[in-house]
Nucleic acid binder design. Structure first.
Lengths: 224, 224
DNA sequence: CCGGATCCGTAACGATACTG
DNA sequence: CAGTATCGTTACGGATCCGG
């Protein structure tokens, strides 16, 4: 925890003692997409400054949410990654994300800051628990100049930055607007293909449709 | 939103633009327990100060999370309450709460700050979705000098401060330690009755057991 | 007394420069 | 590359004061 506490014996207050400071949850958001180097975190969160970033990483490390490790050779680079405890923040953060989707977009937010990975993070969590049970596939997307893939593994859906390391069952190229529209279910996958807004490089149309039936926002309609 | 934004087109960043400042989520926590007067919010969050509290309430109001209204006569008092949008934060906040339960308790947190309502809030959210379907009951607890009740209404479980307005199906008296132990499943309801740590005022032992089978932490074991 | 608003000292933040 | 040091600005926290 940082050197300040709400001082309340409340589960929420305690989690905020660890996570509540500015930028902290966004650092964790980035690490939910995979291990990252210091400079890569800074690149997507430039306003933090190096001092703030190293402060946060240090305090998250002492709290057992983040750990520093070294990538296996030949990479051998130091990276930060989530611990098991940190990984358990995936569901709470996705829940907050889905809530944030409903908010109007502030005019000071420039559209250029859109990143498909961040949409992907919410997307992957909105999976109906049973939708992906028994499925073991990898879906890859080339969105603008971003590459990302989803590892669907029997009930879990993990979004990752970069190309799929060992090939993909479905691979699709589209732009960020199309990707967001697909994610938000404003555009049907079949329609995207028809209008050539999405181009399938690997796999079939029906696999692409099926991919988005797993990835899509079933959680957007309130569940009660 | 407050007059600061992360400036990112990311659902999580946008939700934090609204909720990310200090104290904000704790204000919402209190309002999840029911409408509250300004002074009552201040009483449980004294370190905020009147200025910070009114700032937060104002900004949450412009963001559509909170609204000010007047209690029906004869009370006729002004209160703050969650809007529909604010109420939708229940699940995300409970998810964060359940995460916070796993954290070690900081030594600067004094045990006296424990409030059964706050435990109840997490507790009520950890309900297995199907557990309470078809059930329509009210469970009341007298914990120390606190009174609270749970309204179980066909799949939803809402914790509320105060006595049950229109009677309860089960009413139990215990101390805060017993309540927490029951909530955390460290103590079986039957055992609590046997040891007279819990006294049933209304209802039967089996109803009490059933109540905690609905309220209890099914979600504590990781679901994957 | 309730619901704020104002003031002010302190801590956190944000940008930049500097170092191993 | 991965941080630490410095510094001006903003937010927080505690107190006091004001209108209804």
């Amino acid at each position: 925890m940082s050197n300040k506490t709400y001082g309340q014996l409340c589960p929420l207050a305690r989690s905020l003692d660890v996570l509540g400071e500015r930028w902290t949850l966004l650092v964790i958001r980035e690490l939910l997409l995979g291990p990252r180097r210091f400079k890569d975190l800074l690149a997507v969160l430039p306003a933090m400054g190096t001092n703030r970033l190293s402060e946060r990483l240090a305090s998250l490390t002492t709290d057992g949410v983040v750990k520093k490790s070294v990538l296996p050779p030949p990479a051998s680079m130091p990276v930060y990654e989530l611990t098991e405890l940190g990984e358990q923040l995936r569901d709470p953060l996705i829940a907050l994300s889905l809530w944030g989707l409903k908010l109007p977009v502030d005019e000071r937010i420039e559209a250029a800051s859109a990143r498909a990975e961040l949409i992907a993070l919410s997307l992957a969590g909105a999976v109906g628990a049973s939708t992906s049970v028994g499925v073991h596939e990898v879906y890859e997307f080339h969105v603008g100049d971003e590459r990302l893939h989803f590892i669907v593994d029997d009930g879990r859906v993990l979004p990752r930055a970069g190309s799929a390391p060992s090939g993909a069952d479905v691979s699709v190229v589209c732009d960020i607007e199309t990707f967001m529209a697909l994610a938000l279910r404003e555009l049907a996958p079949e329609q995207a293909v028809l209008e050539q807004r999405a181009v399938i490089q690997v796999g079939t149309v029906s696999q692409f449709v099926r991919a988005f039936s797993i990835l899509g926002y079933t959680g957007l309609t309130t569940r009660r």
